[in-house]
Design a protein around this nucleic acid. Sequence first.
DNA 1: TTCAAGTACTATACAACACATAGTACCTAC
DNA 2: GTAGGTACTATGTGTTGTATAGTACTTGAA
Lengths: 139, 139
Amino acid sequence: MNIENTQSQMRKGILEFCILSIIRRGEAYPSDIVDEMRGCNLQILEGTLYPLLTRLKNADMLTYRWVESNSGPPRKYFSLTPKGEEFYNELEATWNELANAVTRLTTKKESLVSTAGNVSFGPDSPNIPTNTSTTDKQE
Amino acid sequence: MNIENTQSQMRKGILEFCILSIIRRGEAYPSDIVDEMRGCNLQILEGTLYPLLTRLKNADMLTYRWVESNSGPPRKYFSLTPKGEEFYNELEATWNELANAVTRLTTKKESLVSTAGNVSFGPDSPNIPTNTSTTDKQE
DNA sequence: TTCAAGTACTATACAACACATAGTACCTAC
DNA sequence: GTAGGTACTATGTGTTGTATAGTACTTGAA
């Protein structure tokens, strides 16, 4: 439970969305995409991107065409299919809902919950430990 | 690659953040949290929440105290530890960065990439298929 | 011509996590 | 004391990002 891991989890959820967004603006091949992402402070690795593109292609969200390069092997330039466009739109809606929900949650004031203070402890509850803040591991 | 799955992936990354945010406003027990999340259109299930809380507690981000209920067994009321506060602040910063990055990506205009049109096809490239839009599965 | 270096893509094993599901313990009420 | 509800626990599964190694093509220099 380190911070890097959690940050990576956050990124993870929106990777597809970001990649589709980049491709949506115009054909792109993997290195383009990596550069774009990095330019927006979004880490992504080859080992992540290639499988993801393959998955999207096999789901008929993307197509590609081979384009020769003058500095190395040919490249796969990806673009969105109609189905991919539709998918992207749904993801965009989802993202907006999510961002709204987070904003609502994090900006809400306190004292909506926390009725716990009114409930009295049970002095004779059979299995309830009496210490207020427990630190015992129980796995 | 259905939309529900991807939406779930998006949620996944921010679950910890949201839960910490709720607890941060005041002590809460699991059902409180589920209700709060649902109230913000954020689906979460028991089977997800309980392991997550246990993980956070074992990482010393949360503590709990037992509080008797007058309608069932006693409840674990969770609250943030200092370490948890710190963790939350880092997550908040990460979320803001991420949200910014997505905004930048999705609102960027086209025509920054897509220089692909200028590159000519190689008619004699050995292993390059000549069809423009491929649909072959290759796994 | 052949060998090295760089670029582009592929394949495989691994770890983290949400989710589904079943199970246990406690409480209240009839 | 037994049934039903609430709170929490335990285990297995599928998806997916990541790490790492490997293959194929191109260019350029010895």
